[in-house]
């Protein structure tokens, strides 16, 4: 028996309520862009949208689009969700973008058996359909990348340290 396809949960799940710092991220998702906030003073990518750089304290932060590609860093496969709104199994995951940022998302478009360290992934956007104030909000998920970049330094693409 093959493993079931991982669920893509977009119905009645707790949607984001963007704040001033995070709104450009969610606007980017709606525009089909996975954005990160980068400091123009030290080049640090912010873990969380902010008004000051966590690395150097500068305020010169800009939003930039990423290529939306990366490697699977860690994951779990949930069988007992936090609430019945989530269909199972689903796979919350941390993806290391090729630009260096670690983003929280979920892997879809494959089965739990396919997940492995360093698995090449690409972003895919899905709109919430929950009927609440968040309806239409677009979430970034990740799916297996059918055309992964050719590694020039294999370790760079392997999600290892």
């Amino acid at each position: 028996m093959s493993a079931p396809e991982l669920a893509c949960n977009v119905e009645a799940v707790p949607g984001p309520r963007p704040g001033p710092a995070s709104r450009p991220f969610w606007d980017g998702c709606a525009a089909g862009e996975l954005r990160v906030q980068r400091c123009t003073a030290c080049a640090e990518i912010s873990v969380l949208p902010a008004m000051r750089c966590a690395g150097c304290g500068a305020t010169a932060l800009v939003w930039e689009a990423t290529a939306g590609r990366g490697a699977l860093y860690s994951w779990t496969v949930v069988h007992r969700p936090q609430s019945p709104a989530f269909a199972v199994p689903y796979a919350p995951a941390i993806v290391r973008l090729d630009e260096g940022a670690m983003v929280m998302s979920a892997v879809i478009g494959c089965t739990a058996d396919d997940l492995h360290d360093g698995m090449r992934l690409r972003v895919v956007f899905r709109a919430l359909t929950d009927g609440s104030v968040c309806t239409g909000t677009v979430l970034p998920f990740f799916e297996p990348d059918p055309n992964p970049p050719t590694p020039t330094h294999p370790e760079d693409l392997h999600g290892r340290h």
Partner: peptide, 17 residues
């Protein structure tokens, strides 16, 4: 907003560690 939509909860947070 950056964890809840993806179905994170305590068990999942510890599981990824």
């Amino acid at each position: 907003e950056f964890v809840a939509p993806f179905g994170l909860f305590t068990a999942a947070e510890f599981a990824v560690m």
